[in-house]
Amino acid sequence: MDIHEERKDGFLVLGLEGRLDAVSSKMFEEKVLAVIDGGETQFVIDLSRLDYVSSAGLRVFLVASKRLTPAGGKVVLCSLQEPVKQVFDIVGFFSIFSILGSKDEALKSLG
């Protein structure tokens, strides 16, 4: 899996590409923690190019959210593909995450 990093409207956008499984989730977790440790309190994770997610990957989203929320931060997810959406649905993530249809919407919700 590749992680693309960009800054738009003053916010960090992490774009995931490929498979987010037990193997790649470790890298993703490290990246997210590094971002949070670096002082980012509000950022977007763009899933438009993420084909696949397993529970190991889901874990990272939970970790990130748990770290940010108490400090008043927020992570917004956007552009979920159908297979990813299905898994998110199964585990009830739609009720605990801020998930939007597009990157622009996600950025707007932060601004």
Partner: peptide, 19 residues
Amino acid sequence: PDTKQLLEVRPIGGLGIHV
């Protein structure tokens, strides 16, 4: 797992088998 749980109280793991 209780997927209706709020974020604050949800455990990090235990989702795999549920999926």
